[in-house]
């Protein structure tokens, strides 16, 4: 299959995660991912979109951009938020904040598992500050 990109933007509300999750599940299944891997991809998408909405969006109107890239070897998802400036920070994603989330995570934590899940389940997981003051999260799943 030639490389193809699918791009869309959703409002920054969690209501839209469920239809996006269903879409990526159907797509991954069509591409030939195993049932287990489809569930992993759906979970990672849910977690990174949820973080982009809760931590990377000032309000519902700013939206979250998604780019899904597929080719013969992989499914790649890029989620881009616009940031939610707090206490003078340009983005919620600072190395200090990431370390804090990682250190505070425990089995009994009620929150803060999303990045850990994405890191654990994706073949590649990258997080970078972007040019609009938010965070880009890129995950890749190999076929």
């Amino acid at each position: 299959m030639a490389k193809s990109d699918i791009k869309f933007k959703i409002p920054s509300t969690v209501f839209y995660i469920e239809p996006i999750r269903a879409f990526i599940g159907n797509l991954a299944q069509s591409l030939g991912f195993s049932r287990k891997r489809v569930a992993d991809i759906q979970l990672v998408l849910d977690e990174i979109c949820s973080n982009a909405i809760h931590h990377g969006s000032v309000d519902a109107t700013v939206g979250v951009k998604l780019q899904i890239r597929i080719d013969t070897h992989s499914l790649e998802i890029l989620v881009r938020d616009t940031g939610s400036p707090q206490a003078g920070e340009k983005s919620w994603l600072t190395q200090e904040r990431l370390s804090e989330i990682e250190e505070n995570r425990s089995p009994s934590s009620e929150r803060g598992h999303g990045i850990f899940i994405a890191k654990s389940l994706a073949d590649t997981h990258e997080m970078h500050p972007n040019s609009v003051g938010g965070t880009d999260v890129r995950v890749v799943f190999g076929l």
């Binding site: 999750r21 569930a39 979970l43 977690e47 949820s50 934590s109 009620e110 899940i117």
Partner: peptide, 14 residues
């Protein structure tokens, strides 16, 4: 239920 995310697991744990 065929899907659960960490927010839901966190709610159950809490």
């Amino acid at each position: 239920v065929s899907h659960i995310n960490s927010t839901a697991v966190g709610a159950l744990v809490g």
